[in-house]
Design a protein around this nucleic acid. Structure first.
Lengths: 192, 192
DNA sequence: TGAAAAATGTACCGATCTGTACATTTTAAG
DNA sequence: CTTAAAATGTACAGATCGGTACATTTTTCA
C-alpha cells in the first residue's frame, strides 16, 4: 500500500471536480468530502493545480481505456467501431453522474493555452482524434484524418449539447450524422 | 445618460469574463480594469451572478444579431445561409480575442442546471438551433429540426475544437461536413 | 516488537473573495 | 445656478482561498 491515499484522492477529486468545477471546488471541501487530510493532500501534490493535472491524466487514461475496450467488445470492423463510438457516448450521457467533458471544462476554466492543464486537455483530444483516425484508416477512408476531424466535431458537439441540456438525443443525432459522413468518406466519388 | 455606466460595465465585463473566466475574474479586477467603482457596480447589480447574467443576455443578443445580419448579407438562399454559418464562425475563430463560447464556458463553470446562468446558456443554444431550423425549413429539408440538430453538433464541435487548439481548421472541417449533411437532408431518399 | 513511513488534526498565514457603509465629488437637467 | 441623481474613494466585514507548521497518531513492514 505505497501510494494508496494518493490514488484514492485522485479518484475522489475527479468525481468532485467533475461535479462542482475546478475553481468551484476548494481544498477544504475536498478534505471534508474525501476524509483525507489536507496535510496528506499537499504531501502528494505541491499545488492544487498539480492535483488537477493528475486528475486529468487519470481521466484521460481511464476514459480512453474504457472506450477502446468497449469498442473492441461491441463492434467488429473499424467502420462499425467508428459508429459504435456514438453508442458509447450515448451510454455515457445516460449515467446519472454525467456532467460533460472534464477536458472541455478544464479548457474553459484555465484559459491560458500554455497552462499545463490546458495542454493536457488538448492532448487528450489529440489522442482521441488519433484513435478515430486509426479506425478510419482501417475502414479504408481516402482521407482518414479528415474523417476523424469531422467525427470529432460530432463527438464534441454531442457532449456539449447533452451537457447543456438543450438536446437530450444528442448521441443519436451524432450517430445518424456520423453514418452519413462515414458513408460519404468511404464512397469513391471525387471530393469537392 | 441614464443607464450609461451600466452598459459600459456589461460590455467590459463581457470582454474580461470571456478572457479570464467567470470565477477567474474577481470584482476588484473588474474595478481596476474598467475604472468603474465597485459601489457603482453593486448599485446596478445586486450580485456578481446578476452581472454575469446580464453579460450573457447581452452576449446572446449581440451574437445572434451579428450572425443573422451577416447571413443575410453574404448568402441569398436558405441553403447557402446554412453553409455560410460556418464561414462566419471561421471568421470568429480568426479574431485575436477569440476564446471559445461564453455560454459553453458558463455551463462549465455553473454546473447546477437550475442556476439562471445555466438556463440562460441553454436558452441561447435553443435560439441558435431555432434559427438553423428556420433556415432548414426554408431550404426544403424533410426534417428541418433534425438537420438543425446535426448542424448544431458541428457548430459546437467546431467551437470547442478551435478553442482547445487541437484543430485550427475546425471551421473548414465543419463546413465540409455541413455540406454533406445538408446534401443528404435535401435529397429525397428514404431515411435510414 | 520496533523503526520508518504515512497520515492525521489543529491552528494558522496572507491573500483574495463578494458585498457593504458612508461621506464626498462629479455630472446632468431644469 | 440649483438640485437631484449618479458615480466615486476608502475602508472594512466575514468568509473562503491555497498553502504551511508542527506535534501526534496510525499504519506498514522487517
Amino acid at each position: 500500500m505505497r501510494p494508496n491515499k494518493r490514488d484514492e484522492l485522485v479518484r475522489e477529486a475527479m468525481r468532485i471536480f467533475d461535479r462542482d468545477g475546478y475553481h468551484g471546488t476548494g481544498m477544504d471541501r475536498l478534505v471534508t468530502e474525501t476524509g483525507i487530510s489536507k496535510t496528506t493532500m499537499f504531501k502528494h501534490f505541491r499545488t492544487k493545480d498539480d492535483l488537477v493535472l493528475a486528475v486529468l491524466r487519470y481521466r484521460d487514461e481511464t476514459f480512453r481505456d474504457w472506450m477502446n475496450r468497449q469498442l473492441d467488445r461491441i463492434a467488429e470492423t473499424p467502420r462499425d467501431r467508428l459508429i459504435a463510438v456514438f453508442d458509447l457516448i450515448g451510454q455515457w450521457f445516460g449515467e446519472e453522474t454525467f456532467n460533460g467533458c472534464m477536458f472541455i471544462k478544464a479548457a474553459a476554466e484555465f484559459p491560458d493555452p500554455d497552462d499545463p492543464i490546458a495542454a493536457q486537455a488538448r492532448e487528450h483530444k489529440r489522442l482521441l482524434a488519433r484513435s478515430l483516425e486509426d479506425l478510419a484508416t482501417g475502414a479504408g477512408a481516402a482521407d482518414p484524418a479528415g474523417l476523424s476531424r469531422k467525427l470529432m466535431l460530432l463527438l464534441e458537439g454531442a457532449i456539449v449539447s447533452a451537457h447543456m441540456g438543450y438536446n437530450p438525443g444528442a448521441a443519436e443525432d451524432a450517430k445518424a450524422a456520423a453514418r452519413i459522413l462515414i458513408a460519404d468518406a468511404l464512397s469513391d466519388h471525387e471530393p469537392g
